[in-house]
Amino acid sequence: MKHRVEHLFLAPFLLFLAFFELYPLTNMAVRSFLDETSQAFTLRYYLNVFTQPHYVTAIRNSLLFASACSLVGAVAGTFVGYIAVTLPRNQRNFLLSLYSLPLTLSGLVVAFAFIVLLGRNGVLNLIVQRLFSLPRDFYFDIYSWPGLVVVYSFYQVPLMTLTMAAVFENLDRSLLEASRNLGAKPWQTWRYIIIPILAPGFLAGLSIQLAGMLGAFGTVLALVGGAKNLLSIQIYYHTSESTYNLPQAAALSITLIILIGCVLYALSRMEKKLRPGG
């Protein structure tokens, strides 16, 4: 009887998620198959997603952009995470808590900061121009794809750093010494000891990066509006702007969720394979 009462504590949580997350998402999945006016079954909206050029481009752009941002974040974050654990304790704690700040920071603030820093008249651009007496039309363009990758690294690098710092902290140094004492060459230590230990954490970090980036759009929207064609931006415009078309937005959303599901699944499969003994 005592346990019954305590299980009741779970009810508000489950009811809230059921009513405001599960029901809307299921409803969205159903509505993406229904014609808006006649309410008859249709595959039209999904057909659009895979045949209309601007949707196909959006999917391709989203995949490429998310991969680029995640790779930059994953590689740089691993490097920074490694540096972080070699720092003295108080410096490491400061760095790691500072790197948890972007997590709560509005995407619009980041957009604003980078417009002032690296925009057409951005401070850094002006400094570089003056220093090397470069022409006025020579500047780093944050409104281009590579520029957006740089802006998003403000989020991605710290996120990966936090993951990888934890992984490096758990790396048992005596394993490395043991492998050296047993006569392993450096590449063997890397191949058989270090990479298998780091891989699960690295892939988990990479999944967080990829899944997050596939759905991100706030900073892009603030910087370039709809000028960059991403799947998330298409969904946003179909839900809340002039191109209002809810069933199409629903089909695009379901596509995005499936895409993220596939990415997460593939990475978790890879993680299992890379595990020692896998």
Binding site: P24, N27, S207, A211, L214, S232, T239, A249, I257
Partner: peptide, 25 residues
């Protein structure tokens, strides 16, 4: 539930939840 609840925003990104909320309500 312990494993799934913390990663909900990862599986269902905010943009899709927003669309779903607009559609449902």
């Amino acid at each position: 539930i312990r494993d799934t609840a913390p990663i909900l925003t990862l599986i269902f990104p905010p943009v899709t939840v927003g669309t779903a909320l607009v559609l449902a309500f």
